[in-house]
Every structure is written in C-alpha cells, then in structure tokens.
Amino acid sequence: MLTKEDIAKRIAQELKDRYFVNLGIGIPTLVANYIPKGIDVEFQSENGVLGMGPFPFKGEEDADIINAGKQTITTLPGASFFDSALSFGMIRSQKVDLTILGAMEVSENGDIANWKIPGKMVKGMGGAMDLVASAENIIVAMMHVNKAGESKILKKCTLPLTGVGCVKKVVTELAVLEITPKGFKLLERAPGISVEHIIASTEADLIIEGDIPEMTID
C-alpha cells in the first residue's frame, strides 16, 4: 500500500518536460519534491504566482509570498506575480498543461466531487471548479477508500460535483486508474497489492486487460 509520499512520487512520473503544472492542496503539493531529473517544469499557484520554489529557510518567510494553500513559499529565477483574474485567465485558456488535485469521490465517467458534504462540511470549491473545467489533463491524487472503508471510486458520485467528465487519471494508495470512454481501466497496482484486493476495494467496475504490472516507486 502506498504512503502519501509514494502517491506523490508516482504522480511525479507523469510530469513531462516544459509542463506548466498546478498543484492542489494536500498530496498534490508533495509532487513538487519528486520532479524527474532532466526535465524543466514550472509550478503555477492560482493565487497569482508562476515559478514557485521551495519553502523558505526559517526566518526568511514573507507574508506577501504564499501559495494557494496559504503556505509561505519562495520563487525561482524567472518567476512572476499576477492578479487572480489573469491567473484564472491562464488556467481557462489552457496555458497550464496539468492539474493535480485531491478528491472525495471520482466516478467512472470522470466526474469529480471535492468541495462539499451537504449538512456537514462546506469548505468551498476554491479554484477547483475553474481548474477541472479548463485543464486538458487532470490527475486526481486520493485515497481509494474512506475512513469507513467505503470505496471513493464510484459508478456515480453521490456528493455535489466539482466538475463533469474531466478526470483523466487517478492515483491511489492501491492503484493507478485511467478513465476511458468505457470506464475505469486498471493500469498498475501498488507493490504487494493483488488485483482481487483492488476489485474488492472499488465500487465501480474495472476494465482489466492482461497482467497488471506493479508500480515502480523509487
């Protein structure tokens, strides 16, 4: 079973040279720690920065330089700041190549729910609705089952939607899934996890073709 860091490492393998990438809060933020060697990527944060760098050294935090998770950050050479309208302008006009975000539920047609549990929890959608409605390539980082052991990979989402038919790939602690026109296709399994285990943990149907390889995480 993958740790959160492992999920981030596996997703980092999806980064390609010259990609502009937007990382959501939580596991997606960790992806920045595992950029494959030899490629150039730039991270965009929707509160208005492109060319985000690592966290500052202690004592060098600047309240005016944060990411969308409200964390203090630094910038790299070539970075730029801009306002929220332009930030979402570059998202809607598809300048950002890849969006990686978390989810509460994903369905087999690529719907995603991640902003509201009616009557219980309402944090808001933040920039997620704009990102998922606009990005060409969306990868979801999430746990396969919730705390009650129920599958979050569903035939149909039960929670209010964030976007429809938009998710391309899901990486969980158990598996890598691709969303195809026919539904979830199992691409890889976590080291030591059987296909049967994944089927039993998934409410949606899975397309399984041939031997399913184990993920490579280093």
Binding site: S84, I91, W115
Partner: peptide
C-alpha cells in the same frame, strides 16, 4: 447567508 462561487469566476466577476 453564503454564496460559494468558483475562484476564477469570483475574480472575473470583479474584473
């Protein structure tokens, strides 16, 4: 009373 709207829409409604 709360109206939650997508962040990019919020920004563009201001702009």
């Amino acid at each position: 009373d709360v109206e939650l709207i997508p962040q990019g829409t919020l920004a563009e409604r201001c702009r």
